[in-house]
Design a protein around this nucleic acid. Structure first.
Lengths: 104, 104
DNA sequence: GGCTGATATCAGCTCTGGATGATGTGAGAG
DNA sequence: CTCTCACATCATCCAGAGCTGATATCAGCC
């Protein structure tokens, strides 16, 4: 079954600061100092969250001298959007047809 | 700005058991005992998670005698899918055009 | 080489959030 | 009315996740 929309990925995106970072990175590649400036979060904290995003495959890094550019991986979000769209579609169908399992 | 894809909603969906429930409910409306049976989780635990889903507006309930039917609200997922699709699109554009803010 | 600035890692604290057992509520069967 | 069953709520426990300060790494500049 196509059930499991990888929980870990959603979990990673369920944090306010991380989602803010993701939203910022969607528009342009940024390095850590930019993100510190934009979010107001401390460097250490941000670096920890970026590590989480990196390990989840949400972002990729490109070293540039002393700086490190972070950019979003669009395919991750395309897949995620697709999963949710599919879920929405089956839910819509279920709602319209009023599918329900009878009480035992 | 259309930035903030409501973190709370994503957070709610970022739990394995809750996502499993959502996936089950996408196909057919079920009552708690069904979900207990399907997931193998304890009734109390499941009831707690259902409360979270209810308060997040993800599911709606319909009492039916002693039973309570849970059904998914498709619009929630349609919106969510739309948000992620938009995010994916801007990220795709950014990646192809290689938008990056210059290092200070 | 030594220094500075950018970023990552580590260790520790705190507190949220999930799991569980006991209990409350409310509807139907007898 | 009473008993049972479906479900919700409450109180508690504990692991995990986020925040922070200190430290390590690593690249460029002098």
């Amino acid at each position: 079954m196509m059930t499991s929309v990888d929980t870990d990925l959603i979990r990673v995106l369920g944090d306010p600061l991380r989602l803010q970072v993701v939203t910022l990175l969607a528009r342009e590649a940024l390095c850590t100092s930019h993100l510190v400036e934009e979010t107001g979060a401390k460097q250490t904290n941000l670096s920890n969250h970026l590590r989480v995003l990196r390990e989840a495959g949400v972002v990729e890094t490109e070293p540039c001298g002393r700086f490190t550019y972070y950019r979003l991986r669009p395919d991750v979000f395309e897949q995620l959007a697709g999963r949710f769209a599919a879920l929405a579609q089956t839910a819509r169908l279920t709602a319209e047809a009023n599918f329900k399992r009878s009480c035992p």
